[in-house]
């Protein structure tokens, strides 16, 4: 929010030894995240890949500030995260787009809250609506859109708010396989057109290898870091190239051994 120049930081996101536990039903506490240290550089596409239901979403919520850490700390741009803020955009699995607003209304929401004038924010929103391929659906309400289109709105909405960091929580998890491939390709295209620092949570290994610069493999509950892989294949990547399949086999095998 401040107008002073951004302090140069080496890592846009720094998670230092963070842990999170919730009160368990029936007493005690349930540990969901344990001792995770994680860093992301400017414009890096980082995938968090892991099995099961717990841990990954919590990790995203901690970075987003939607939830608070029980131990350790999260820094974004060198500042401790305490609550949600516009420099960290989240794309939710359940889309969480506002059902009473049109596509345009959803995408321009962030700038509108920040007090940007109508004409300017409309122009800006239109750019991102076009970028995610929703031209012609500006005045449609979410009930009129398909699952993939809703997720596009969610992505455009976050892009339009120009966050430093984009956090994506299994954004394509609820889509059918065909749409999922399509959306992976779309996201790659959009991200290469306008690079951002992305933390992308997924339980789909192909998706992680197709999109990410680096994959962090998490263990099942409580989530800890098992291994990291840097992926330096040129984009767009080929799902059936030997390198792709080799990586896929390797990561899958270390997952199997932990289950």
């Amino acid at each position: 929010m401040s107008l002073e120049p951004r302090r140069p930081v080496e890592h846009v996101i720094e998670c230092e030894n963070i842990g999170k536990s919730f009160p368990a039903p029936g007493g005690g506490r349930r540990e969901v995240v344990r001792g995770i240290t994680l860093r992301a550089r400017e414009n890096e596409f980082l995938a968090l890949f892991g099995p099961g239901q717990c841990g990954k979403t919590t990790l995203i919520n901690l970075i987003a500030g939607l939830d608070s850490v029980t131990s350790g700390r999260v820094l974004v741009n060198g500042e401790t995260v305490r609550e949600p803020g516009p420099e960290r955009g989240v794309v939710f699995q359940s889309t969480a787009i506002f059902p009473w607003l049109t596509t345009m209304g959803n995408v321009e929401y962030g700038p509108r809250m920040a007090g940007m004038g109508r004409a300017e924010r409309r122009r800006k929103a239109q750019r991102y609506i076009d970028l995610v391929g929703l031209r012609g659906f500006e005045n449609a309400f979410p009930v009129q859109l398909s699952g993939g289109m809703k997720q596009r709105v969610g992505i455009a909405r976050v892009y339009c708010n120009e966050p430093r960091v984009m956090l994506m929580d299994e954004p394509f998890g609820a889509l059918d396989a065909q749409t999922r491939y399509l959306m992976q390709e779309e996201l790659r295209r959009v991200w290469e057109a306008e690079k951002r620092t992305v933390v992308f949570v997924t339980n789909n290994i192909e998706e992680a290898i197709y999109l990410a610069d680096r994959i962090v493999v998490l263990s099942n509950c409580p989530a800890t870091i098992k291994r990291e892989y840097a992926i330096d294949l040129p984009r767009p990547r080929n799902y059936v190239s030997p390198e792709f399949l080799g990586l896929r086999k390797e990561i899958t095998s270390i997952m199997d051994s932990t289950l």
């Binding site: 803020g85 516009p86 960290r88 955009g89 989240v90 969480a96 506002f98 809250m113 976050v158």
Partner: peptide, 22 residues
């Protein structure tokens, strides 16, 4: 919906704006 309120906060809405728009 808690998640919609979370989405609004993440997009930079303050308490008054959350009340009015969500």
């Amino acid at each position: 919906d808690r998640q919609l309120i979370g989405a609004a906060r993440m997009l930079g809405a303050n308490q008054r704006q959350i009340f009015l728009t969500i």
